[in-house]
């Protein structure tokens, strides 16, 4: 899977990393059980600081997307049953983005098309 970081973006590099790894899993380019490169190798290959990769890995671990196993590295976790609480959290996160789109003049049908386009790129786990 290709990871592409925009160096001078407003979005911090570790967030870009986290988002791209999550999208990669959603698209099926990397699968549960696959391991991510070691922090050192990843940072060296991408040309970023080791702390940046570390921060992203910890963020992914906190979200329950990877598990960091000492010695064997970061491994993508299998899908678990999602809790109602978590679902509510996702709706809360989604709300401001959709609201912003509507306020900016996108109509509801278009929002639905956007969501469908994005879903089209990804597959269900």
């Amino acid at each position: 899977m290709i990871i592409q970081i925009e160096a001078e973006s407003d979005i911090p590099i570790y967030t870009q990393l986290t988002n791209q790894i999550i999208e990669g899993i959603a698209r099926g380019e990397i699968a549960p059980g696959d391991s991510l490169p070691s922090v050192r190798a990843f940072a060296a290959d991408l040309g970023v600081n080791m702390h940046t990769v570390n921060k992203s890995y910890h963020e992914l671990e906190k979200k329950g997307i990877i598990s960091i196993v000492p010695k064997s590295g970061a491994i993508i976790s299998p899908t678990e049953r999602i809790s109602e609480e978590k679902k509510q959290q996702i709706i809360t996160d989604l709300k401001p983005v959709i609201a912003e789109a509507l306020v900016l003049g996108v109509n509801k049908k278009e929002v639905q098309e956007f969501v469908n386009t994005i879903l089209g790129e990804m597959k269900e786990r």
Binding site: M1, I2, I5, G24, L36, P37, V48
Partner: peptide, 10 residues
Amino acid sequence: AMQVTDLSVR
């Protein structure tokens, strides 16, 4: 400016 890597290159 972009920085890029491939997770499978190793």
